[in-house]
Design a protein around this nucleic acid. Structure first.
Length: 347
DNA sequence: CATGCGTGGTA
DNA sequence: TTACCAAGCAT
């Protein structure tokens, strides 16, 4: 390399690279300092060092998908009592796994958790891979969860990109994208300020910031540890980021539930596919709003992720695929929240 | 890449 | 009451 070009490069690096480094370090250090100050004690979190138990991290991260911390805490504690180790989960019956998940929603998470526990025991020597690029191959583990496990339990320097991180990055850099495109922009921006160590803490800090100060509505910018880096704040446009994505209306559906009781036994059936797969239910069919209105019963209403459902319960006596269960044994079976509401009306 | 997949909290 | 949204993944 010629002397002149080397000098030019040196000048360039001296003028740009240190600035970038400085920004990176300042941002990360200020964010981490804030997090170490405000971090809550949680049964599935260890702050200040690498988490010693990948199984705990895995289970908690799966539970935390689209689910609030407050809801997860009790489920996590009960789960670890019921299935203390990966091996315990691998050895369990799916019935018991779904029962432990009952009420938490998105039940494929529980089915995949069980599947992957067996997969890890059978094919990975019961050990978790430490790299996110390996973890992501496991069923139920996507880019978010893979990065969460590898950073929190193995200190891999890879960012998690969830709704919080997308929102924080969208505001810091005034990112104009929405949905998938925003996720990729946010990933690039976040990875640039990702430190080499304390990676799990850094990721947790980013998410905690989004979950508390940098909230969707009425963020607390005055208390923000990284306010000085925020472009949207500087331009007084925090409320314009991230850009809202167009949403579609949720259809309303109706149904009638058949309450069948003989000799103290109640008829239930197991769902075998699709929505709420492998959970149990009282038999029911979808009906139109006209028939729904003609049934003189107080409706049970429930909101699913993509439609709303109203159900009315009628006494019936017919035959179909299913089993008869003692009323007192009904709750041994895993039901969705919807069915628990329906059962609640009959007790 | 858009859509299907639960539930609870909050404005 | 409605609308929105929360530490996503599979297909």
């Amino acid at each position: 390399m010629k002397k002149s070009s080397k000098g030019f490069l040196s000048d360039l690096l001296l003028s740009i690279y240190p600035l970038h480094c400085l920004f990176m370090r300042e941002f990360s250090e200020k964010l981490l300092a804030w997090y170490y100050d405000v971090a809550r004690e949680l049964p599935f979190r260890v702050v200040g060092k690498v988490h010693p138990n990948p199984y705990h991290v895995w289970v908690s991260e799966i539970m935390l998908q689209q689910t609030t911390v407050a809801t997860v805490i009790d489920y996590f504690n009960r789960w670890m009592t019921r299935f203390p180790t990966l091996q315990d989960l691998a050895d369990a019956d799916e019935h018991d796994v779904l029962k432990a998940w009952e009420g938490l929603g998105y039940y494929s998470r529980a089915r995949n958790l069980h599947f992957t526990a067996k997969d890890l025991v059978d094919n990975y020597g019961g050990q978790f891979p430490s790299m996110s690029k390996e973890l992501v191959k496991l069923k139920g583990i996507g880019p978010y969860t893979a990065a969460a496990i590898s950073s929190i339990a193995f200190d891999e320097s890879i960012v998690v990109v969830d709704g919080n991180v997308c929102r924080v990055m969208a505001r810091l850099h005034m990112l104009p994208e929405v949905a998938k495109a925003l996720e990729e922009s946010a990933r690039l921006k976040a990875q640039k300020v990702m430190p080499d160590h304390h990676c799990g803490d850094f990721n947790s800090a980013l998410m905690e910031l989004g979950a508390t100060l940098c909230s969707p509505t009425s963020p607390s910018c005055e208390d923000c540890p990284v306010q000085e880096f925020c472009k949207a704040y500087a331009k007084n446009k925090v409320d314009q980021f991230p850009k809202p994505k167009p949403k579609l209306a949720q259809p309303q559906k109706y149904g009638k539930v058949f309450w069948m009781e003989r000799d103290g036994k109640v008829f239930i059936r197991k769902r075998t596919e699709g929505l709420l797969k492998n959970l149990w239910e009282l038999p029911w069919v979808e009906i139109d709003s006209k028939e729904f209105d003609q049934i003189d019963q107080k409706p049970v209403r429930h909101v699913f992720s993509h439609f709303k459902l109203g159900l009315k319960v009628i006494d019936a006596d017919l035959e179909s695929e299913g089993i008869w269960v003692e009323k007192s044994k009904l709750l041994d079976y895993p039901f969705s929240k919807l069915m628990l509401k329906v059962l609640g009306t009959k007790s």
